[in-house]
Design a protein around this nucleic acid. Sequence first.
DNA 1: CAACCGTGGCG
DNA 2: TCGCCAAGGTT
Length: 320
Amino acid sequence: MRPMQKTPQTSLLKWYARRGRHTLPWRNTRDPYRIYLSEIMLQQTQVATVLERFYFPFLEKFPTLLHVAQAPLDEVLKQWEGLGYYTRARNLHHTAQACKGQLPTTIEALIALKGIGRSTAHAIGAFAFGIAVPILDANVRRVLHRYFGIESRDEKGLWAAAYALLDTQHPYEYNQAMMDLGAMVCIKSTPKCDDCPLHEACIGKESNPLAYPAPKPKKSAPTHHLALLVYRHEGRLGLVQRTTRLLQGLWGFVQAPIDNAIEGVYLGRVSHQYSHFGIEGEVRLIDGWVEGLEWFEVEALETLALSTLDHKILACYLAQ
DNA sequence: CAACCGTGGCG
DNA sequence: TCGCCAAGGTT
């Protein structure tokens, strides 16, 4: 057996063997469901959040994909409460039912499922089924931008780079290593180029790592001023299950534009920031029954999935 | 295809 | 304090 050549891939895998995050629970299972669940939870969400607050409780409640499929959507949303991007939970439930608790094993079939795009399909393919395809998450993107000196965020160029660097013999280790490298060494603000196994041929290191990728143009987020209405009737609170795209399926308090005829007793102010707008709201208590709401004892609210804003409103009410 | 979709941590 | 953004996908 001839000695292994020194390639970016071998350097990367050697680094990964020593410094990789090998204790992550979704790296210590062959269960496609557990890998799939981690990939969905981790979309646009930091590892620590998923690891410390959501992954294990969800698996405790739903040990298999079939458990997800057979559960009411409301229970899945309740387990997702606080994690955000709730479409992920609704797609997870839909996909569990669509594939009857058994995930398909090809990239084409995975990508056809709701909530699974190209990168997630590749991640499941590589991590659960050993398919030789690259992933393109935020960590890998940053490594590729810098390594190849790519300023443009153009998708085609990044996928081409991803395939160019992929170690087709070790897709599992390679992809995990690239994510760890992006998360631990090739980090956004202060990359540790001295510790990087790819530093020899890295274009970003030779110039300025922070120039890759080119910074995004920033967009301003508007603020909406709302009345946040806590309806109360015979000791119960009136809520609605939202049907809007935002927070669909979650329960919450009625929101109304602030105009010249604000009812109720002022309870306080709450503010909340979403990705693309903010809410400055004043919480008001209104005693009386109105149509179109469902009424719950305060204790019963614990069984409902509420958004973080609605938890703030509830806390404001309970503080009185 | 640019906007939309949640939340929390960090500099 | 505040803008940025993280194991992205959908419309």
